[in-house]
Amino acid sequence: MVVYSLYILNKAAGLIYQRDFNEGLRKLSSNDYLVLSGTFHAVHAIASRISPVPSSSGIEVLETETFRLQCFQTLTGTKFLLISEPRQQGSDAILRRIYELYADYVIKNPFYQIEMPVRCDLFDRHLGAYIKSL
């Protein structure tokens, strides 16, 4: 079980949280991270529109040879993207747990302004502990 990194996008496609969990991943420039998240947001929106199935949820999983990207969209439009190794199982459950942590340590934090970048020590700490425990 290797989880590479986590992205959290707000409903306006802004990247509010990005964290790599493994050493040795090539760092992108901060602008590239924004481009990446913006592109995914757009593709996700298009996918949900052009889907033959009515009320499609858009892209949920993207599988490639080198990684697997799982997307979890909350009812409020926040997206959680988890990038893991290709044969990762149960990414969906991991994302739900991360959503719980987000709801606890970010949303309930009085110093967090909604839709703004996440800077909460407790969230970092608990997220790190959870990913390590996998």
Binding site: Y105, K108, F111, R119, L122
Partner: peptide, 9 residues
């Protein structure tokens, strides 16, 4: 329990 105080405070 859920509060992370920002550095400036």
């Amino acid at each position: 329990s859920y509060i992370s105080v920002p550095k400036e405070l």
